[in-house]
Design a binder for these strands. Structure first.
Lengths: 119, 119
DNA sequence: TATTTATTTGAATATTTCTTCAAGTATGCA
DNA sequence: TGCATACTTGAAGAAATATTCAAATAAATA
């Protein structure tokens, strides 16, 4: 039999309750996961890295630098912006994008780790 | 007409080249994106947070705390481990999981940001 | 006003991912 | 040895995602 839910814990119940109580709420967790997801795609991560290097760039710049089409870049920038990693500002015909503080911090955290993955 | 690739840049070509040259290689970008992806799911983020609180926990503990089935927890832990965010160690019948340095750093970075998302 | 350029948006599709169910190891114990 | 427990793994379906193509704004300029 296998109900996939253990009745008894390997640690004691009060401690388990205390850990559970200390966890961030489900809304907070969802938002944090979305923030992580914003950098979870190579194309988006590359765009964020380009903004980290270049400071403020327009969509056309980013498309050229990343070697992707403009509308793909636009799609990805939208997700980065909706998660607060980048801001945009219109300048005439152009729309200039740049990293926010959050975006910079997250980018550094993700890029800064040397890979030590296992099987 | 729309070839979706601009011939001319909003910044000058040498600067664009220099930005492109400063970007991490595609392999590095891919690995970093995978690391971000490890925390890009609410269930996995919750498991990581539980390990951050509890120190070292077995799969059964984590299933109880997170309210998920054991095999789902196991699936997610595998991904966290393959990206170097957690380690495992067998102790008799139990398998104990804990955060790595990388895992702790990434978790803090993702949870530490207050949400400031836009449209 | 008509046209061109820069960007955004929508729809469609192929791929990936999350979750569940079912079966498989591995370890300890009767 | 046989059985129970803790965990892992594989397969399959539903949901989400990345990408492309095509069309729609928005702003400058002729």
């Amino acid at each position: 039999m296998n109900d996939d839910r253990c009745a008894l814990l390997c640690i004691d119940a009060p401690r388990a309750e205390s850990i559970r109580g200390a966890l961030p709420g489900s809304e907070t967790v969802r938002e944090a996961a979305e923030r992580a997801r914003a950098l979870a795609d190579p194309t988006r991560l590359m765009l964020a890295a380009a903004l980290g290097e270049g400071g403020e760039l327009c969509v056309c710049d980013l498309a050229w630098i990343s070697g992707r089409t403009q509308n793909l870049v636009s799609h990805h920038l939208r997700l980065l912006r909706s998660n607060g990693l980048v801001t945009s500002r219109r300048d005439g015909k152009l729309v200039m994008y740049s990293l926010t503080g959050t975006g910079h911090a997250l980018l550094e955290a993700v890029l800064g780790e040397k890979t030590e993955a296992r099987s």
